[in-house]
Simulated scan of single mutants.
Amino acid sequence: MRLEFVENGPIRVEGKRFVVRVGEREEVLERPRLSLCRCGGSGKKPLCDGTHARIGFQAPGGVLEVEEGD
């Protein structure tokens, strides 16, 4: 699994199928990439809706790769 922390933006997760559960709500998304809010301002949490750009969110970029071990 690979997570990309976009400079001044969301966390991008690469995959194929995502199941997003929030409270009683469950949504299945079939797509190659998902952007998660990290500014706290999204109206679609946990998904990013672009609010970070409007509010001037600032944070460094980076990558986290999770490798499956034996």
Rank of each mutant, 00 (worst) to 15 (best):
M1Y: 08
M1F: 10
R2G: 10
L3A: 04
L3N: 01
E4V: 06
E4N: 03
F5N: 03
V6G: 09
E7P: 15
N8R: 03
G9F: 12
G9L: 10
G9Y: 13
G9K: 04
P10F: 03
P10I: 00
P10T: 00
P10L: 06
I11M: 04
I11F: 03
I11A: 01
V13F: 11
V13T: 04
V13P: 06
G15P: 03
K16G: 14
K16W: 00
R17N: 05
R17C: 09
R17Q: 09
V19A: 09
V20R: 07
R21W: 03
V22P: 01
V22G: 07
V22C: 08
R25C: 07
E26C: 09
E27K: 01
V28E: 15
V28M: 11
V28L: 10
L29I: 13
L29K: 08
R31H: 10
P32Y: 00
R33G: 10
L34I: 03
L34W: 02
S35W: 00
R38K: 09
R38F: 06
C39N: 11
G40F: 13
G40N: 04
G41N: 13
G41V: 04
G41C: 09
S42P: 05
S42G: 05
G43H: 13
K45H: 08
K45V: 12
P46M: 04
L47Q: 04
D49C: 04
G50P: 15
G50S: 01
G50L: 10
T51I: 10
H52L: 12
A53F: 09
I55H: 12
I55A: 04
G56D: 11
F57S: 01
F57M: 02
F57T: 00
Q58I: 02
Q58K: 14
A59Q: 00
A59W: 08
P60K: 03
P60E: 05
G61D: 01
G61K: 06
G61S: 11
G62Q: 08
G62D: 12
G62N: 11
G62I: 04
G62W: 10
V63E: 07
V63T: 11
V63G: 06
E65Y: 13
E68W: 02
E68K: 00
E68N: 01
D70W: 14
D70H: 08
